[in-house]
Nucleic acid binder design. Structure first.
Length: 582
DNA sequence: GCCGTTTTCGGCCCGACTGTTTTCAGTCG
């Protein structure tokens, strides 16, 4: 078993223990160990074989043994017994809004409820309301939660969350009683998938702000509303939470609600280590629970707060407790790439294959936006479903691109299209011969039809990287967010091969992909692998994805120098030539 | 179940909201 499989079993054990009514800290110990495993960059198998689990954060004697058993044998009797002792349907009950382990346990023990269906039936039969600790309202809420679950997925792609957040943020900014406001939560941290939207506002009139928040257009229902906080369900199916604080409290609240939870825990611990206390209302010179303004250490913004805790300002994208504290302490935080530094995209399609727009339109658009270049990398012939080009068509397209470029030059424009291909990685090599690839300026190699075998897929991608005409690998893992998992693939081995061959790796900026995953970029960067932030555009409006992709690159700790398409046209051409000259 | 130079036992981040209570437990973030 690999680290992700082991981690997901540890998380499940933690949840099962909660359902059993075990010590919640024991449950958390399993979750913590899972996080540690997920963050590993070496194969877990190797670590276990070399007996190096010892001393890892959150992994003691008991977890060492369990992890070792899972890695070496592929199963764990303790887990299997635990799992068998409870009906499988209890896990899905936990996903319901307002239903946690204690309630699930009670429903199961008292009413024998072990699935969403039996819970729904019990509510309709009025049996749940009669339980001690439950009531009419709880029962109605559970029914609502079941209906919600049926109607909406609880996760949303970043781009959908951004679209839903923009009008809310705009209306908060315009509100006369709002002093400062911001999105917070996973949206501010630029996670690829978002659960719900969080907003933080400072105001002297919280009631008025909350009022306008719950009454704004697009609100389908109000889930909760108090003096300082409200939750609504938007018509788009996304939940939005607003928290209102005083302006003095704003920096602390913004940091608190931006998270991540793991990042906040370390922040609190740093406060405790100084004999202070940190919460959403302030940083206080007291180890006791307090909100005494006299004890508050004044911070005007988040940067002040980080400074008080001995840290450089940590950009929201990095707040995942994945090394940012050590870096911020030692002034080693990266200077993250800005999306405005991007000069173009090196993986895009036109109407020659499955794109929508003509070469001329694409060129006009790129020029208008002030970009420097745009590579046309239509599909190769194996992707017949996408009208992949055969070698003859590719040669025709090279001429067509030259004509567009000639026209641009005649008009005095700096912008250029680049010739290229997204060549399919087939079972026994690339879809085009090297002599054709050599005549193209940009070659992206992508795996579209993977094998079921991890070693086979890994081998194919490594072989593609070893081809001197291939500049970069496209959408390496093949995942589609909220739709399809990554191919079976040893991504680390492929990254290593790219490092060895000087092959770049694409950060596919499509909000459906964001592939490579941000969690792998720190590793790729440490190996010296360069990133290309590509739109994989099929329409003009997909240019906007450059901004999304840059955000993901920031989340992956990437700086301007790590991203190839921050180069101007001339140095880019030089960089493109470099691999071929080896 | 993990952790530790004030501790090998007794902590483990902490506050708001809701509903069911009549002072609090459960859930959520």
């Amino acid at each position: 078993m690999d680290k992700d499989q082991v981690a997901s079993i540890l998380v499940e054990i933690g949840t099962l223990l909660e359902l059993k009514g075990e010590n919640p800290f024991k449950s958390r110990a399993y979750q913590n160990a899972a996080r540690t495993l997920e963050g590993l960059t070496e194969p877990l198998e190797k670590i276990v074989a070399e007996d190096r689990l010892k001393g890892m954060k959150g992994i003691g004697k008991a977890l060492q043994e369990k992890i070792t058993t899972l890695v070496t044998t592929g199963h764990l009797p303790y887990y299997e017994e635990l799992k068998a002792s409870l009906p499988p349907g209890l896990m899905e009950l936990l996903d319901l809004q307002g239903v946690g382990p204690k309630k699930v346990k009670k429903l199961y023990l008292e009413l024998g409820i072990d699935s969403l269906a039996s819970l729904e039936a019990a509510c309709q039969a009025d049996k749940v309301a009669a339980l001690e600790g439950f009531g009419e309202k709880s029962q109605a809420k559970i029914l609502e939660a079941i209906a919600f679950r049926k109607k909406f997925a609880s996760q949303h792609r970043l781009v959908d969350a951004l679209l839903a957040a923009e009008p809310i943020l705009a209306s908060l900014r315009e509100h006369p009683e709002v002093t400062r406001c911001s999105a917070a939560g996973s949206l501010r941290r630029w996670k690829e998938v978002i659960g719900d939207l969080d907003f933080v506002v400072s105001s002297k009139q919280p009631a008025e702000v909350l009022e306008s928040f719950v009454e704004q257009p697009g609100v389908a229902s109000v889930l909760a509303r108090g003096d300082t906080k409200a939750s609504v369900l938007l018509a788009s199916g996304i939940q939005a939470d607003l928290r209102v604080v005083s302006d003095v409290e704003y920096p602390y609240a913004l940091a608190y609600f931006t998270g991540s939870k793991e990042h906040n825990i370390v922040m609190r611990q740093r406060a405790i280590a100084r004999g202070w206390r940190l919460n959403e209302y302030g940083l206080f010179r007291s180890s006791e629970e307090t909100r005494d303004p006299a004890l508050r250490i004044v911070c005007h913004d988040e940067a002040d707060l980080y400074r008080e805790l001995g840290l450089e300002f940590v950009p929201p994208e990095l707040r995942e407790d994945r090394g940012e504290f050590i870096a911020a302490e030692n002034h080693h935080l990266p200077r993250l790439v800005e999306w405005t530094s991007l000069k173009g995209s090196l993986h895009n399609h036109s109407d020659w294959s499955d794109g929508r727009n003509t070469l001329a339109d694409i060129a006009a658009h790129g020029q208008e936006l002030g970009l420097a270049y745009w590579a046309i990398t239509d599909h190769s012939r194996a992707s017949f479903q996408a009208q992949g080009l055969d070698p003859d068509r590719v040669r025709q397209q090279i001429k067509a691109v030259a004509e567009v470029n000639q026209k641009l030059a005649d008009e005095g424009a700096e912008f250029r299209l680049l010739t290229g291909t997204e060549v399919d990685i087939l079972k026994d090599g690339l879809d085009f011969h090297d002599d054709l690839l050599a005549d193209l300026e940009v070659v992206v190699a992508s795996l579209h039809v993977p094998s079921n075998d991890e070693a086979e897929n890994t081998k194919r991608l490594i072989r593609a990287a070893e081809n001197k005409y291939v500049h970069m690998l496209g959408h390496l893992s093949g995942r589609l967010l909220l739709e399809r998992d990554a191919y079976k693939l040893n991504q680390q081995a492929v990254i290593d091969a790219c490092a060895a061959t000087g092959t770049w790796i694409e950060l596919n900026a499509s909000p459906y992909r964001f592939d490579l995953d941000w969690r792998l970029w720190q590793y790729a960067r440490s190996k010296g692998v360069k990133c290309v932030i590509n739109c994989d555009a099929h329409r003009l409006e997909h240019v906007a994805w450059l901004r999304l992709g840059a955000g993901v690159a920031r989340k992956g700790w990437l700086e301007t120098a790590d991203v190839v398409n921050t180069l101007a046209l001339k140095p880019l051409r030089k960089a493109l030539a470099a691999k071929r000259s080896t």
